[in-house]
C-alpha cells in the first residue's frame, strides 16, 4: 500500500431506488420510534385548554399510523428491488446461501469487530456480516409490521389492516401484542446507533467514501483492488 497515491475507480453501488428506500426508511423509523415512545409514555402536560380544542395525542398517533403505512410499503418495495436491482441490492447479499458467506462473516467479525490483525479485504457493497444483520432487521421489520397492524386492526375498517385481526389472538391478546411491539422498538434504536457508528468507522478506515455513498450512490475503489475483483 506504500505507493505515491491510489488511483480510485468510481463504482456505482447504490441505485437510486435503494437510496430513496434508505432515506425514507430512516425518516419513518425516526418518526415511528419518537411517536411510538410518546404513545407508550406520554409527556405530562398541564393545560387549561379544553380537550375539544386540543388533539395533540391524536396527532402523535396519526403520524405514527401514517409513518407505519409508509414504512410497510417501502419495505415491500425493497423486497421487490432485491429481485430486480443490481448485484449490490440483490437478496443474496442478505441471506446466507453458501459456505463462503459464513466464511466472509467470520472474516468481518475478526477484522472489524474484534480488531484482529489480518489481510484487509473490504467489500464493495454490503459486507457479509452487515448483509446478514440487515436480514435480521428485515425480520424485525416484519415483526413490527405484524404486531403494529395487529394493534391497529381494531381501529380501522380498511380491509388491508383488517387482514391482521388474527394477530392479537396469536399473541394472547392486545396486552401482550402491545408489549412485544414496544420492546421491539428498542431493537431499532440499538440498530440505528451501531449502524451510524459503523458507517463512520468504514469511512474512516477504508477511505472509500462510505458515508457519501448513500447520497450519490458510488464508492471509490482502489484501482488494484478493482482489477483484482474484476478478474
Amino acid at each position: 500500500m506504500k505507493k505515491k497515491g491510489h488511483y480510485l475507480r468510481r463504482v456505482f453501488v447504490w441505485q437510486l431506488p435503494v437510496r430513496v428506500y434508505h432515506w425514507l426508511n430512516a425518516l419513518v423509523i425516526v418518526a415511528l420510534c419518537a411517536t411510538g415512545y410518546l404513545i407508550g409514555s406520554p409527556p405530562a402536560i398541564m393545560s387549561n385548554v379544553e380537550a375539544s380544542h386540543r388533539y395533540l395525542f391524536g396527532i402523535i398517533r396519526f403520524i405514527h399510523f401514517v409513518a407505519a403505512y409508509i414504512f410497510f410499503f417501502n419495505f415491500i418495495f425493497r423486497i421487490y428491488w432485491g429481485f430486480v436491482g443490481n448485484k449490490y441490492a440483490d437478496w443474496k447479499n442478505f441471506i446466507p446461501t453458501n459456505k463462503k458467506y459464513f466464511q466472509q462473516m467470520w472474516e468481518v467479525l475478526k477484522l472489524d469487530i474484534f480488531m484482529m490483525k489480518g489481510k484487509e479485504n473490504p467489500s464493495i457493497g454490503h459486507n457479509a456480516l452487515a448483509g446478514f444483520t440487515y436480514f435480521l432487521t428485515f425480520i424485525a421489520f416484519l415483526i413490527q409490521c405484524i404486531t403494529g397492524f395487529g394493534l391497529y386492526a381494531s381501529m380501522t375498517d380498511w380491509w388491508f389492516a383488517d387482514m391482521f385481526v388474527w394477530v392479537s389472538n396469536v399473541f394472547g391478546g392486545d396486552f401482550a401484542l402491545r408489549n412485544w411491539h414496544h420492546a421491539a422498538m428498542w431493537f431499532f434504536i440499538l440498530f440505528a446507533m451501531v449502524h451510524v457508528y459503523l458507517v463512520f468507522y468504514h469511512d474512516y478506515v477504508e477511505g472509500r467514501g462510505e458515508i457519501s455513498s448513500m447520497g450519490g450512490g458510488w464508492k471509490f475503489i482502489e484501482e488494484e483492488v478493482f482489477e483484482e475483483e474484476k478478474a
Partner: peptide, 20 residues
C-alpha cells in the same frame, strides 16, 4: 421495556466508544 432498553442503549454506546 423502556428501562431495559435504555440500559441496553447505554451498554451499546459504551461498546461503540471502546470500539472507536
Amino acid at each position: 421495556a423502556d428501562k431495559v432498553g435504555m440500559v441496553a442503549a447505554g451498554v451499546t454506546a459504551a461498546g461503540i466508544a471502546v470500539h472507536a
